[in-house]
């Protein structure tokens, strides 16, 4: 199973499960990362972490260690940004 932190910039994925618990999981899900959500990895920060995601029409920054709790399924490449 692939997790979000392993995704490369430009990759689009669908969320299959958000693991973790408590405040961590709640915050990640509150921001819109829920089961079935499609999102794209836009880029990683200059020092390699955190990553910038694009989902539900907005940009979100997430640390790789937190992204590790999100299981994803890669989507076939689409043209354009979304």
């Amino acid at each position: 199973m692939q997790t979000l932190n392993q995704c490369k910039p430009g990759e689009s994925v669908r969320v299959t499960r958000v693991n973790g618990e408590g405040a961590m999981r709640r915050r990640i899900m509150d921001m819109g990362i829920t089961r079935g959500t499609e999102l794209r990895v836009r880029r990683t920060a200059p020092l390699g972490d955190p990553m910038e995601l694009f989902l539900r029409g907005y940009a979100l920054s997430l640390r790789k260690s937190d992204a590790e709790t999100v299981s994803v399924l890669p989507l076939p490449k689409k043209k354009g940004t979304r």
Partner: peptide
């Protein structure tokens, strides 16, 4: 305890 670093990047 660790807390997530979740931050919106506004336009």
């Amino acid at each position: 305890q660790a807390a997530p670093f979740v931050m919106e990047l506004p336009p």
